[in-house]
Amino acid sequence: MWSQVKAVLPLSIRQRVESLSTEIRDRLEEIRVRQGRPLELITADRAGFISQSGRWTPDPASAFVPDREDCKKMLNLVSHHSLYALEEELRRGYVTLEGGHRIGLAGKVVVENGRVKHLREITGFNVRIARQVKGVARGITSLVLKKDRVENVLIVSPPQCGKTTLLRDLARMASTGLPGIPGRKIGLVDERSEIAGCVDGVPQLDVGSRTDVMDGCPKAEGMMMMIRSMSPDILVVDEIGRKEDSDAIHEAVYAGVHLFTTAHGRNLEEVCRRPILSQLIQEGIFTRIIVLSRRKGPGTVEDVYDQRLTPVRRQVKVGC
């Protein structure tokens, strides 16, 4: 995993991060490079800087500061010297790397006709190291997957609570199959390359052996394309909530395709306040609504409801 990340770091930064102890390095979640400001490192439980000599330091004053040259080199490494190939990525503001890691980019935005055209003078990089947690969905599979039945799932959660991780794991299990439960064909529409982390169309994270991925595709359109062309048993999409999404979801469900999806929200009430989602929920499209929180770490399952919004089972065990 480190070998994939280090390929985009220029030597000056790479050497310093490599001189950290392996236990810190293995727990890194983000490496933030900002031109002219201290290099920041973030692990699961703390944030800090790195000294000139490559030691962890909480003090920004003694920290290593990447300069213009470092940022330029980093951009060359991230883009493989091919900015022209990254137009779409620059518009969206991030690049996906091999291994599903993502690099957020910040800089001067070039606007054309009121739309972001691309980024120039890129001076801020946020290397977000992907760690897929296999098996997080094991606690809920019995509620979702049965031998001859698949529920339509909506995962509700605030950001950073493991929504996408759970969705990916659920997709992986449904795709590969579990003991006594056959695998199913899955169509994954990955608008922001977050679920499968595709590079050149090939998933970098394990999304199961029977999963087809439509990478970087607008959700509603992608769902329709999948239904038309790939005959999936289950459609997997992240973060629905727009009018077009709801049309595509109707189309899918009436065509007998099942659905795993997610939505932003702290709890069920909050989601029900959003017009499109509340309509879908009232129609009883989702037969399992799973609410997540960070109470006992990311991915804590708070509640599971069925289509009549009655709790199915409280306090499901999570994790591996």
Partner: peptide, 12 residues
């Protein structure tokens, strides 16, 4: 390649 493939420069 730049027009259609948009592949990386080193590969091209």
């Amino acid at each position: 390649e730049i027009t259609y493939g948009a592949r990386r420069l080193d590969d091209v």
